[in-house]
């Protein structure tokens, strides 16, 4: 479970809740546009050490069965995952 993108985006004053609090984990914008390069996983080389998942500052790498995958909506393309990957299963490729 993690915070996820919502459809409803408050735009006017009446959309804002009366209380001093607002729901935790309410995401309305992606970070995908920040990226010049994107990490691409070669799952045949992946040994499942999960270091990329652990060291990702944005937490966008996740387990999917025995494979790992990336949430490209929120990846900023910093490249830490590619550098930490010992078997070299993550390559950084230019965004088109």
């Amino acid at each position: 479970m993690k915070p996820f993108l919502r459809d409803f985006v408050p735009t006017s004053y009446k959309d804002i809740p009366d209380a001093t609090a607002y729901e935790a984990g309410y995401l309305v914008t992606k970070n995908a546009g920040w990226r010049n390069i994107r990490p691409v996983i070669d799952n045949t080389k992946c040994v499942g050490c999960l270091n990329c998942y652990l060291y990702c500052p944005d937490g966008v790498i996740f387990r999917e069965g025995s494979k790992i995958n990336i949430d490209y909506d929120f990846c900023k393309g910093c490249g830490i995952c590619s550098k930490i990957c010992k078997p070299g299963a993550i390559k950084m490729e230019a965004e088109k």
Partner: peptide, 19 residues
């Protein structure tokens, strides 16, 4: 460790600089 830590993400989608 990486394998035993909770998979729940509680700080996600933030606007910190890359890296």
């Amino acid at each position: 460790n990486a394998k035993t830590i909770s998979e729940t993400e509680l700080f996600y989608g933030h606007k910190a600089c890359a890296g």
